[in-house]
């Protein structure tokens, strides 16, 4: 398999858990083992959108109990004989090879996945700042020769990019260091909230400069967080910013 593989460096490895849980998009080629009409293919593709049941394949590294995964979309882009070029948007942990196999069973004739390329991993997409290993090698050596930080910025995103799809909460400077020490976020520390947050959602806490501070779990929805004046609003789960980046203004 080829395609989007986000590689996090040093401190940024802490954001990987958010990426592992993020949705993915793939483009692939499936081959049916018999002739099927275009109409039938599109019908069955439609049936596989939404919640599906999937049993992880034999060689999977997880428990092989049937689990539910969401297919956000599944489109046939081109059909040529028994070859179908498809695009699928799916929840993390979906086995695309298995999905294609299961579609083949519903089609009746069977099918297998011939080729697959990941074009999205959470917020990272193939047409935005994706680089090859050769690019990494070239740009890093250019940085070493010239000392031009622009060379590094051409292939290294700030780790905040990885959190683009999570709902965000912004906090004032005085609240930052307490969070870095593992404290939960209380209402007075909050300056801005994104809409649509529900209780128990995973959220990302940011400084007013847009730096990631921590990942947490919302204990209230957006509307409530906007209204209330005290109490814990976000339970801090994973601190991302080193302690002491902001001053210690708490006791």
């Amino acid at each position: 398999m080829t395609g989007v593989l986000p590689v996090a460096l040093e401190e940024a490895t802490k954001v990987i858990q958010a990426l592992l849980r993020a949705g993915k998009e793939y483009i692939g080629v499936m081959k049916t083992h018999g002739d099927v009409s275009e109409k039938r293919i599109k019908e069955v593709f439609n049936e596989f959108q939404g919640k599906i049941y999937q049993r992880p394949p034999l060689r999977a590294s997880v428990k092989r109990a049937i689990r539910v995964r969401t297919i956000y979309y599944l489109d046939a882009l081109e059909i040529e004989g028994r070859n179908i070029l498809f695009r699928v948007g799916c929840e993390a942990g979906t086995y695309v090879r298995k999905l294609i196999y299961d579609i083949g069973r519903v089609l009746g004739c069977g099918a297998h996945m011939h080729e697959l390329r990941r074009v999205r991993a959470g917020p990272f997409i193939e047409d935005e700042g994706m680089v090859t290993l050769h690019d990494v090698l070239y740009l890093y050596s250019r940085w070493q020769e010239t000392g031009d930080m622009g060379m590094l910025r051409r292939f290294i995103f700030p780790m905040e990019k990885a959190l683009d799809l999570l709902p965000k909460i912004f906090i004032r400077d005085s609240a930052v260091d307490a969070i870095c020490h593992g404290a939960h976020l209380t209402a007075p520390g909050i300056t801005h909230i994104e809409s649509g947050i529900k209780t128990r959602d995973t959220v990302a806490i940011f400084t007013l400069k847009g730096e990631a501070v921590a990942l947490g779990t919302a204990l209230a929805d957006s509307e409530e967080m906007l209204k209330v004046m005290h109490g814990i609003m976000i339970k801090t789960e994973r601190v991302l910013m080193p302690r002491g980046t902001y001053p210690k203004l708490w006791r």
Binding site: V131, T132, D173, G210
Partner: peptide, 26 residues
């Protein structure tokens, strides 16, 4: 005085807080 906007981080923080969108070869 404290921190940096993510796109203005100095070296070596660019690397230390960085993530690469890599095209994995086959």
């Amino acid at each position: 005085k404290y921190g940096h906007r993510p796109e203005e981080r100095p070296y070596p923080d660019i690397i230390k807080f960085g993530i690469i969108n890599l095209d994995k070869p086959p």
